[in-house]
Write a protein that binds this DNA or RNA. Sequence first.
DNA 1: AATTTATTTGAACGATCGACTAAATATATT
DNA 2: AATATATTTAGTCGATCGTTCAAATAAATT
Lengths: 225, 225
Amino acid sequence: MPEALKKQDRRRAPETAARILDAAESLFSVRGYHGVSLRDIAAEAGVQVALTHYHFGSKEDLFRSVIERRADEHALGISTALEQAKTVTGTRETRRQAVIRSFFAPIVEKSMRGGQGWKNYVRLLALVANMPQEDESVSAFRQSYDALIASYIEVLRTIDPEMDEQDVHWCFFFLQAAITHILVESKMLDRQSGGSLQSSDLDAMIEKLVAFFGAGFRGLGARED
Amino acid sequence: MPEALKKQDRRRAPETAARILDAAESLFSVRGYHGVSLRDIAAEAGVQVALTHYHFGSKEDLFRSVIERRADEHALGISTALEQAKTVTGTRETRRQAVIRSFFAPIVEKSMRGGQGWKNYVRLLALVANMPQEDESVSAFRQSYDALIASYIEVLRTIDPEMDEQDVHWCFFFLQAAITHILVESKMLDRQSGGSLQSSDLDAMIEKLVAFFGAGFRGLGARED
DNA sequence: AATTTATTTGAACGATCGACTAAATATATT
DNA sequence: AATATATTTAGTCGATCGTTCAAATAAATT
């Protein structure tokens, strides 16, 4: 009897599994975990309910699978962006702005240029970030995210070692707030760009973010030179 | 037959209704609308399920009632704070900081000094803000909130009339992001204050917000003099 | 072609959901 | 005390939930 965990031993129809993941990703990201039924997902994917259990097991397993599908690529994108930002030289302001840019750019880029799937995924991320921590279904994801945050804080502290540590945490807290809000309100971004998103608009938006939050850091004592 | 809308014609036990609202407020704010059943709420309140229907009607009506209980007081607090901020004179920076303070202070104050009920309520607000707009159960609330935002934008534009209008919207977008994130992560604030919250800590936090976001505005072209 | 394995279908299961009703109880009014 | 109204209880309704299973179908292997 085929238990849920085995995938494509013979290449057959993993396309069905992808359709289920797409449907789940889209619905979860809008209505949340409890607001979506397996029958909703199956209907959206055009398959039978039992197929969700065959391919992914329980509903919670399916939710985990939705996240895991893109998590690695997403984490890699951010961490490599941070590594690149570390190599930037110049004034503190320049280096700090590079770090801020490396935090915003990958996820904004994926959301705006990665197609509908990535847009749904990043919206789902914001939803996960607001979940009660007791939810074990996303604890692994949150752990890796927290580790990433810690590495960002560390880099920012090497740039401004004399800055109060609490203040650095506050600054980064505001960065997280902004990125979360952007992901949730992605419709607003669509509206702002009038439906047809230009690459120049996207770059301009990132520069707004860098300018605003770079200045914010200075408001809490970060040095410019 | 008593239909759901009639309240205390004779003063009897509105205390029960309050207990139901408290339970619903607490549970909704953590697990969301769909993550909580009427039986959960009734159990938390120590009453029968049918009582929720007797006092408040449907589940959606109950959700609305939870919000409406505190919405007026909350809205009044913010709008009076804005009116006071309008009277502040001095440099643009001073006046702008007063506006920013008036946006953060009332809600942070209620969350930290208004008891557990208010803390749950403001967390629920952040949850509502992330709801899909199609949900009609909160459309009235969102309308009044949007109107408030518009009045804030208007005041900020009178302070910096030469600033690009889009940039003003961006700045305020970041303000909203911060307040939302603060409400969701209220546990973090508790931890930061070590459980025993001092009034001085609260004031210090608000000053961090004002300093950071005041500087952020300048990063997008707001003038200081 | 025969067999094995992978995938999909269709239908059911027990549990729980929101909603509702009739009866019982408590409180106030006459 | 008798009556009227307000509140609470206990239980039921159909619908929908997540999950499971046996049978049917499709694809690969022998």
